[in-house]
């Protein structure tokens, strides 16, 4: 054995200190045998071979080897103790009621959850999910939907204009027109999106809120089919035994038009302050597509029929969770948002 070889082996053995520090109990036994084993231990072997070196080298390397032997033995001892205490920590004295180490959890906004759920249900009825721009023209927001600007019907939409003829959409219904112009029936779409009304912020109004619009156009769609579609949605979204009520109403883009009430999900119809003691809650406006809308969007109103509906996920979210003030949904308070764990 040469001088260099001996030094190289020492350096190599020194590296094993790191391995020992993280070794498992069985790994420790192996390492002990490999290094300090009486027959084949590398360090044992090195110490035995010292005699092959010149005397002055022998003393120096011998000293270094013995120091290393001490360090390795100490390291093995220390690691053995660690492993034993880890064993006992799991097995004996821990109070398992102590809290876990957790990660932050985030969730979707409660309005998004409602929007997604609604879209998913209509997906089961073959509706695809599409979106459109928030900046619109009054042609698409009003005219194509049979809402004359010089008629009181337009008062139902207090509009933010950006410039003459350009506005922030007051409903997601302009996508009815865009879609009918671009695609041939069968059309079945559900359109979520943000809409705008010139309503000052108060507990039940916001100038910006979410709306979901739906449109089905094909041959053979009737009022009976329309009722079935809406009924399917209400029962899937609220519960199987929810009462659904269709009331005549007026929207310029549907005829016949209907307002849809559901049995109050809070009091189950017995009357409470949220449903103004009627047992019912208004959740959407809907109806059969007005032939004038078909005509203005290039669909043959003699051949095709269809239905459309629109609803407000903010309101539905407030009903669902008993949220008293719409502004809470815009404050982004961590203590509020954190309540809607998914």
């Amino acid at each position: 054995m040469s001088n260099e070889t001996a030094r190289g082996r020492l350096a190599e053995l020194e590296n094993t200190l790191e391995t020992i520090a993280t070794a498992s109990p069985s790994g420790l036994a192996e390492l002990r045998n490999e290094i300090l084993g009486r027959k084949a231990g590398k360090l044992t072997h090195l110490l035995r071979s010292l005699g092959e070196l010149p005397p002055e080298e022998r003393r120096e390397i011998g000293a270094a080897a013995n120091i290393l032997k001490g360090r390795i033995e100490a390291a093995i001892e220390k690691r053995t103790a660690e492993c034993e205490s880890a064993d006992s920590a799991v097995g004996q004295s821990e109070d398992l009621a102590m809290p876990a180490r957790t990660l932050w959890r985030g969730n979707r906004h409660p309005v998004t959850v409602v929007v997604d759920e609604i879209c998913e249900i209509f997906k089961e009825l073959g509706f695809t999910r599409v979106v459109g721009p928030e900046v619109e023209t009054d042609e698409y927001n009003f005219t194509k939907l049979n809402i004359p600007l010089d008629h009181p019907a337009a008062d139902m939409h207090d509009t933010f204009y950006l410039s003459p003829g350009v506005l922030l959409r007051t409903h997601t219904s302009p996508m009815q027109a865009h879609t009918m112009e671009k695609y041939q029936p069968p059309i079945r779409i559900v359109v979520p999106g943000q809409v705008y009304r010139r309503d000052p912020f108060d507990p039940s109004h916001s100038p910006v809120f979410e709306q979901i619009e739906g449109l089905a156009v094909d041959e053979g769609i009737t009022f009976v089919d329309f009722k079935a579609g809406i009924d399917y949605f209400v029962k899937a979204f609220f519960s199987k035994d929810t009462k659904v009520r269709f009331r005549p109403s007026f929207f310029p883009f549907t005829e016949p038009s209907a307002e849809i009430d559901v049995g109050c999900p809070l009091c189950k119809g017995s009357g409470c302050s949220t449903c103004k003691h009627t047992g019912f809650m208004e959740i959407m406006g809907a109806g059969m597509v007005h032939p004038t809308v078909f005509d203005r969007c290039g669909v043959d109103s003699e051949k095709y029929t269809g239905y459309a509906y629109g609803m407000g996920p903010h309101r539905i979210t407030m009903i669902r969770h008993g949220i008293p003030d719409i502004r809470l949904l815009y404050e982004n308070d961590m203590r509020f948002l954190g309540q809607f764990v998914e």
């Binding site: 695809t128 999910r129 599409v130 079945r188 009924d231």
Partner: peptide, 24 residues
């Protein structure tokens, strides 16, 4: 429809064809 009563109409779904509009 109004005079007949909306609630008097049956609720029955007809088979539907898939939408020609793709998901966005």
């Amino acid at each position: 429809a109004r005079l007949h009563g909306y609630d008097e109409f049956p609720t029955q779904m007809i088979p539907f064809r898939p939408s020609s509009v793709p998901n966005d």
